[in-house]
Every structure is written in structure tokens, then in C-alpha cells.
Nucleic acid binder design. Structure first.
Lengths: 110, 110
DNA sequence: ATAACTATGTAGTAAAACTATCTAGTTGGA
DNA sequence: TCCAACTAGATAGTTTTACTACATAGTTAT
């Protein structure tokens, strides 16, 4: 069982949560995710997700020049994105309870 | 954002956790999952997953007759399945910490 | 006999994600 | 001044994954 499969479902919510803390560009976001334990996330995973989230209307982007390399595309969360984040938060809370309950019962039997 | 995407990653682990409590057949497992909040799980989702878990060697199956309908295929967790469950448990614990940390920081900013 | 429930399975499609690769600017060293 | 390493973003094409819709079949109650 790969860790990736577990991460998939929460990645979108985590990206919204991080952008909710202030504007951030993709490359920086990848590093932030790595620091938060999502060490397997690479550009090929994140950039398509960011494009999808912008299409959905959860994020907006602004391109700004950089002194350290090519232009950066900064992402900002929209009011709709904040609503999506709230929904994710609630679903995550419920999922945690359900999974923990099931795992606890299994532990009692081992 | 659909709840389904979140559930996907944990479903496999939850199935292993439930089978760890004792032998159970697919139809019964679907009902057990429904009672545990996984209300979207249907046969077309679970049966292929059970077949995959058996192929992997995490589960074994025995067909037994039923008085209430067609034969039932009972699933039993293997020692390998228990190891897989342990791994899932650890990954789940880590994921919870990471996600909760990110969500908490976002909450502080809203 | 027929509807509802029990029980499992799969073909075909749809969606999602990763790998590999590309473009391109900057920095520092040899 | 050339190359490697780092920064920054994107995507074509393949692989993986999951769901929808349907099929099969036994039992129960009307």
C-alpha cells in the first residue's frame, strides 16, 4: 500500500488550507508541503492540481517577476475557495472519527 | 469536492480493519461500512477491492451456503494483511497529524 | 409470478495521477 | 564562458484507478 493513495484525497484540501494563510506560488507550495510531511509531492502532481483549482474558482493567480529565476505564479484563495475549505474541514473531521472508530475496534481484536 | 475522493484512500485500510474483527462476507461488509459513515460504498466499489486484496495476499476467502440467498464469500485477514493493516495504521496516524497541523494554521488565519 | 431482498461479479467507460520531458531565467564555480 | 545546479512552470502521453450499469442467481413474501 502506497502512501500516495492516502495523500491524494487530502492534498486538495491541504493546498487550499496553505493558500488561505497568504499568497504563495507553486514552487514554494511544494516546499511547504514537503515540510509538512508530504514528501512525495512533485511539480507534475501539484501544477495540474493548481490549474484545476483555478478553473474551479477556488484559487486565483497573479504572475510576478522574480529575482531568483523565472516569473512566479502566485495563488490566492477566493471566497468560494474558503467555502470549499470549510466543507473539506467538516468532511475531514467526520472521516477521522469514522476511521479511528474502525481502527480502534480492530486493535481491540488483535 | 466529493466525499468519495477522501474516502478512496482509507477504504482499503478500513476493509482490512473490519475483516480483522472476524470473518465477514462482502454484502455484510458493505452494510458495516454504511453504519460507519461510508454511506456511498456500493457493490461495484467493494467487490473489485476485495478481489484485489485477495490477489495481494491480504485476505483469503471461503464460500459458504446461505439460507437467505445465494452463497456467501467470507473473507478472512491473513498475517500479511495484519502487517498491511499495521502499516496503514501508522501512515494514517502521520497523515492525521500533518493535515490537522495544516488545517489549524489555516484556521488561525481566518 | 412478480417484486423485493440477498449476494457476487464484470465489461466498458470515465476520471485521475504520475512519468518523463520541455522551456526558461538565475547563480556560482571551473 | 561554459556547464551544472537551482528556480519556476507546464503538459503530452501513459498508466492506474474507480465507478456505472448491467448481469446472474437464490430466497421470501404477496
Amino acid at each position: 500500500m502506497k502512501q500516495t493513495q492516502l495523500i491524494k484525497g487530502v492534498l486538495e484540501g491541504c493546498v487550499l488550507a496553505i493558500t488561505a494563510q497568504g499568497e504563495i506560488y507553486g514552487y514554494e507550495l511544494i516546499q511547504a508541503l514537503h515540510q509538512n510531511g508530504f514528501t512525495t509531492i512533485v511539480g507534475g502532481t501539484l501544477y495540474p492540481l493548481l490549474i484545476k483549482l483555478e478553473k474551479n474558482g477556488d484559487l486565483q493567480s497573479i504572475v510576478k517577476p522574480s529575482a531568483d529565476g523565472p516569473d512566479r505564479k502566485y495563488y490566492v484563495i477566493t471566497t468560494q475557495g474558503i467555502r470549499t475549505l470549510h466543507t473539506f474541514n467538516q468532511q475531514w473531521f467526520q472521516l477521522k472519527n469514522h476511521v479511528d472508530k474502525i481502527l480502534k475496534k480492530a486493535d481491540d481484536n488483535l
